[in-house]
Amino acid sequence: MSRTRLVLIPAEGSEPAPFLMLDADGRVLERGHLSVETPALPGARVRTVAVVPGADVLIRWLTLPAGRPVQQRAAALWALREDLAVDPAGMRVALGAVEADGSRPVAAVSEGRLMAWTDALSRLGLTADALVPDSLVPADPEEADTVNTITFGPTVALRGRRLAVSVQPDLAPVIAGERRLVPIATDAEVEARLIATALTPPVDLGGSERRAPQGEGWKAWRLAAGLALALLVSPLVLTAAAAIRDDMAASRLREDAEARARVLFPDMAADADPLDEAQRRLALTPPPGGVAVVAAVLFQALEGVPGAELDSLTADPVSGVRATVSYTAFQDLEAIRNGVEALGLRMVEEATLEEGDRIASDIIVGVGA
């Protein structure tokens, strides 16, 4: 595609949308406005980059684990969960390029806002190849004590070191703090930044970063491994670390496996072969990454079941990765199982007990044998 159309989606959907038509070198071929009454004319395919209101987009700089993009987006969404005002399940995440310090910009936006922008573009006769928040249009400042700003309609986009946000003008000094605000005010300067954004979008909220469908060919436990790395700030990791230490200690006691099997399975029949019985009960084996992966998978699955909690998590080479989960209704266990299996692991129920108004189940989670 030799031409690029840059279009600014206004904060007020009824307003005309300014656009620039650029050649491959970024030279402006045409300027104008699009509206419902005067939409884009059909014709040769043109790459379209839409700049959308940054006030609706959360941007943070994160250092993500290595992996495929869908894994990294899952880890980023998990890391951002405390900053999101809505259910993370309804969010889209886009990743920028890795920077010199290993971090990268991560942009999150609700699926509802994306749909609204897509509909607005459709009314203008357009389909976007990339969606970029206006908060990333100003250049990253060369000096750490400055913040570059561009005004887009009722908001101002602020860009500083590891900062990109669009706010009401009176909030700009508050956000900048001790840093100096440097307005990009002339039309030529603003246009230059828009052209640079169109030629090299820093993130893409709606095109190449589409949500991956369930059931991709790659092994889903790797997604969970990425989530586990993002769990470093969670108390669950303390449990996981303790379990891993137990696992390492237990590996030195394999010669006492028969006695351990009876301790782990006290309901085992007296005349049963302890090791054979333990093998039979081990329907699952731990996934690569071990207990940290299972912790991430379970925590993610429980997040989707209101009132469900992870009460305990343990692991050793004999009993495998085991957990106790509690919930409020019997059908919740199936919802938890579906959440676990959606991330590529399997869950086996060992025992279930009603305790007052809650239900607790002992489960084993791992890769199907």
Rank of each mutant, 00 (worst) to 15 (best):
R81W: 01
D56C: 01
E178K: 09
A139K: 08
M115C: 00
P42F: 02
A261Q: 01
A120W: 08
L227F: 09
M115W: 03
L345S: 06
V28E: 10
R193Q: 15
L34T: 06
V291N: 01
A272H: 08
D276E: 15
Q279Y: 07
V263R: 15
D145H: 11
A250D: 05
T155E: 14
A283E: 14
G215M: 07
L84A: 06
D23L: 07
P65D: 02
P288I: 02
G43F: 03
G307P: 13
Q72D: 02
S110M: 04
D140S: 12
R262F: 09
R337G: 07
E189K: 10
R27K: 13
A144P: 11
D267H: 13
R179M: 02
G304C: 05
E111A: 13
R161N: 11
R358M: 12
A74M: 05
R180M: 11
V190F: 04
T200L: 13
R262A: 09
R47P: 01
A272D: 15
V294I: 10
V137P: 11
G43A: 07
R281M: 10
S326F: 13
V190G: 06
R31Y: 01
D23Q: 08
V190L: 11
A212S: 14
D256I: 04
L223A: 11
D357P: 05
M248S: 08
A192C: 01
A188T: 14
G32D: 03
G112N: 12
R92Q: 15
P202L: 05
G339P: 04
M248Y: 12
P39N: 10
S122N: 11
P18D: 11
F19S: 01
R60D: 11
S166W: 01
I175E: 03
V348S: 13
G43L: 09
P201E: 02
V367A: 13
A224S: 15
D246M: 03
G26E: 04
L284A: 06
W117Y: 15
L41R: 15
A66W: 01
P88C: 06
G289A: 09
R73P: 08
R281F: 05
L124F: 06
L58W: 01
